[in-house]
């Protein structure tokens, strides 16, 4: 029974999320004016969608228990690269406004190289430097975007 349940977990978790999102959206759309069918307020359509999500979520619970199990899709998705890539994006967000595009890209590319199994620090540094220069050239000089290039 437990293995059976575990194989169906993706569908059940998905259904639960759908119901949860539906309930939250329903609560939120009730705070807006509903209006009537002939003159719908801003809350009318979203609450229909929210109810739809709840109903479909319940339907998914039902079918998930009956249908052949699906299992999670793992193909190459693991926690480490996800965390590293998110960190590299956040690094860019933190650096871009104060230090400019070159340091921001340098940091984010350097960080992101750690998402793969390949750990060659000098090569990562080189790749980060080249990418930063090329991106700055492409976006600031070719496309003419106004961005801070390099400032400390």
């Amino acid at each position: 029974m437990t293995t059976k349940l575990r194989e169906r977990l993706p569908d059940l978790v998905g259904a639960l999320c759908a119901i949860l999102v539906g309930l939250l959206a329903l609560r939120e759309s009730y705070t807006y004016d509903m209006g009537s069918l002939t003159n719908m307020g801003p809350g009318y359509f979203p609450s229909l969608l929210a109810i739809g999500m709840i109903v479909l979520g319940l339907l998914l619970v039902f079918t998930a228990l009956r249908m052949p199990p699906a299992g999670f899709v793992r193909d190459g998705l693991s926690l480490w690269p996800v965390m590293i890539i998110c960190a590299s994006l956040i690094a860019f967000a933190l650096l871009i406004e104060r230090f400019g595009i070159i340091p921001a890209i340098f940091a984010s590319v350097f960080l992101s190289t750690f998402a793969s199994d390949n750990r060659n620090i000098p090569r990562s540094l080189l790749l980060a430097a080249i990418t930063a220069l090329c991106c700055a050239g492409l976006f600031v000089y070719l496309l003419g975007l106004s961005m801070k290039v390099f400032a400390i």
């Binding site: 590299s88 595009i101 890209i105 590319v109 992101s112 990562s124 930063a132 991106c135 976006f139």
Partner: peptide, 11 residues
């Protein structure tokens, strides 16, 4: 390839 794509995407 992928770090370059990250840079491209974020900029």
């Amino acid at each position: 390839l992928f770090p370059i794509m990250i840079a491209f995407l974020v900029v």
